[in-house]
Nucleic acid binder design. Structure first.
Length: 574
RNA sequence: CGGGAUGUGGCGCAGUUGGUAGCGCGCGACGUUUGGGACGUCGAUGCCGCAGGUUCAAGUCCUGUCAUCCCGACCA
């Protein structure tokens, strides 16, 4: 490809809208163009990168015996009504009607389509297991797109669905996907990727992992143990608590006029915040009724864990009404209004002497022991993990909290969809059963942006050879000079004939501009052809990551360059 | 959906107490240049987001609306 024929321009400045590095560079470098919020067109360089990522994914999917299929983007609402998600999913799913008044949806994920495709065909246990996948456009009407390609509304995704006759079999495939994903990330050049245990959210099912690329701009928070490798999304990370029982004390009611916050209580009693039983008030989404979480004063409530425990949606209480029976600022577990649900975090378990509210204006209790003064309660883990928390696996207090971008996920779905959509097969014993499903996704555009985010400098992206839009860029520093152009043109032609992907900057511009653009193209191997070099009978060859800078004699340069490309490609081989 | 901000040429921006729009980059032509975003001369590009209103006069003031971005909520 000659730059003179390439559509797209490169900018000195990024639009002021761009805040994160990959977004800036991909706009500045002429990779993407925004059309609407979270909706982008890709220019040729970005399209080429996406295609390479897709092909690596294809190779790895095919390798684990997944077969590529294609589902429709537009599906009838009725199919989604079968699974129940037509109503359970909110406005993230785009819905519309056709000219006949039929309700349709835009595909945001394809479990329903996968079941639809397979359910009448895979009617015998002998036809299991099997895995299907597609690489296709999805539309999700995100409430808030952000960060260029990091979080968009329309995007290309590889989504795979596996079907099994037993949990063990699902787990086998799940493990193969896990390994395939690790290979995919290595091959596309994503470096800091960890798999974390995650919340299954609306997908349903039990076990799931998210593959996270660690970066400060990540939207997810992760708890990671550097000692034993335990890692989990903050949403589900368990929190081990070192509880010190302390001295047994008598329950005493103490006047605490106007002392409402943990801060103020700390000051008032002059004791550590770990000695308080903090009350956090939530409301159920369905009827706004209240529930109260009691947790140790130094900890925060993890709302996702709370939701998962309750099995329903809740939100932090907006206003606490008079008639609720809640005395804001003085809430405690003793003598709490019987109509209120209380949840006890396990951080309170076994502590002998706690300070808590007395459910009476301006009074607190001291010396409270839950078992003794409230009775037997179920302790649950709803605390948010914090830096330095105790690892639930190895028991060392070394948990670190990091940010990550989700660049893939794998779910064990169970029979949620096959049951709801009445997909059955006849088992060996002649009994009709619902197949067990797994699903597995990778966002292509997000992966591209993530690699850019992690592999760049202030001048532009540094694309790994495996996904670079072109493998070699030739910079003809003096295209008006016949001798120089003869060398550059010849090299371009020879390399292309040898199957090397070449971007040829044949423009008549000053070297400074050409180099600045080359940095934005981020192509791994750069070949500079200039009058100076030609006089010396050489071309100058360097890598974008600055690890190599050398000269090759003009005669034989093509072969040397081809070998260099092959060598660099080797690093990312499957 | 809450909070904050911004809409002026392709990009970055300026535009005073209201007086009819400018700078830098980029773009075109010519010339001089040529190893990290050159210089000179000439030139093109604006429904000042949109719709109302106030005014002799609105980029500027008022009202509404749309769009985009950031923080949060949400998120397969």
């Amino acid at each position: 490809m000659k730059v003179t024929a390439l559509l797209g321009e490169r900018f000195k400045n990024a639009p002021s809208d761009c805040t994160i590095e990959s977004h800036k560079l991909m706009v500045r470098g002429g990779y993407i163009k925004n059309m609407a919020s979270g909706i982008y067109s890709l220019y040729a360089p970005a399209k080429r990168i996406a295609k390479k990522i897709e092909n690596i994914i294809r190779e790895e999917m095919d390798r684990i015996d997944a077969q590529e299929v294609m589902f429709p983007v537009v599906m009838p609402a009725s199919l989604w009504e079968e699974s129940g998600r037509y109503t359970s999913i909110g406005s993230e799913m785009a819905r519309f009607t056709d000219r006949g008044g039929n309700r349709l949806v835009l595909g945001m994920t394809h479990e329903e389509a996968a079941v639809h495709l397979a359910r009448n065909t895979a009617s015998s246990y002998t036809q299991y297991p099997f895995t299907i996948y597609q690489i296709q456009t999805k539309f999700r009407d995100e409430p808030r797109a952000r960060g260029g390609l990091i979080r968009v509304r329309e995007f290309t995704m590889k989504d795979a669905y596996s079907f099994h006759t037993s949990q063990e079999d699902l787990e086998k495939t799940y493990a193969r996907f896990y390994e395939a994903y690790e290979r995919i990330y290595r091959r596309v050049g994503a470096k800091n990727v960890v798999a974390v245990k995650s919340d299954s959210g609306m997908m349903g099912g039990s076990i799931s992992h998210e593959f996270m690329l660690l970066t400060d701009i990540g939207e997810d928070t992760l708890a990671i143990c550097p000692e034993c490798g335990y890692s989990a999304n903050m949403e589900v990370a368990s929190c081990e608590i070192d509880n010190e029982a302390g001295e047994v004390e008598e329950l005493k009611k103490v006047s605490t006029p106007g002392v409402k916050t943990i801060e103020a209580l700390k000051e008032f009693f002059g004791i550590d915040e770990k000695k308080f039983a903090k009350a956090v008030v939530y409301q159920r989404n369905k009827d706004d009724s209240y529930l109260i979480v009691f947790i140790r004063g130094d900890l925060e409530v993890n709302e996702t864990k709370l939701r998962n425990y309750l099995g329903e949606e809740v939100h932090p209480a907006a206003v606490i009404t008079e008639e609720s029976g809640i005395v804001a600022g003085f809430i405690g577990p003793i003598g709490l209004d019987g109509g209120l649900t209380a949840v006890f975090d396990k951080s309170l378990e076994g502590i002998n002497s706690l300070v808590c509210g007395a459910n009476e204006q301006d009074f607190h209790y001291t010396g409270m022991n839950v078992e003794r003064d409230v009775g037997k309660v179920d302790y649950v883990d709803v605390a948010k993990v914090f830096e330095g928390a105790v690892c639930p696996v190895c028991g060392k207090p070394v948990i670190t909290v990091k940010r990550g971008i989700e660049i893939g996920n794998i779910f064990q779905l169970g029979t949620k969809y096959t049951k709801a959509m009445n997909m059955t097969y006849l088992d060996r014993d002649g009994e009709a059963k619902n197949p067990i499903m797994g699903c597995y996704g990778i966002g292509v555009g997000r992966l591209m942006a993530s690699v850019c985010e992690e592999s760049c400098d202030k001048y532009g992206p540094i694309w790994p050879m495996s996904i670079a839009p072109w493998q070699v860029e030739i910079c003809n520093l003096r295209s008006t000079d016949e001798a120089v152009s003869r060398v550059a043109d010849g090299l371009y032609e020879t390399l292309q004939n040898d199957g090397v992907e070449v971007l040829y900057d044949d423009r008549d511009i000053r070297p400074g501009s050409m180099f600045a653009d080359a940095d934005l193209f981020g192509i791994p191997v750069r070949v500079v052809v200039s009058p100076k070099n030609c006089d010396a009978g050489v071309v100058e060859v360097s890598t974008r990551d600055k690890s190599i800078k050398t000269e090759f004699a003009i005669d034989g340069a093509a072969e040397e360059i081809r070998a260099l490309v092959a060598k660099l490609l080797e690093e990312y081989k499957g």
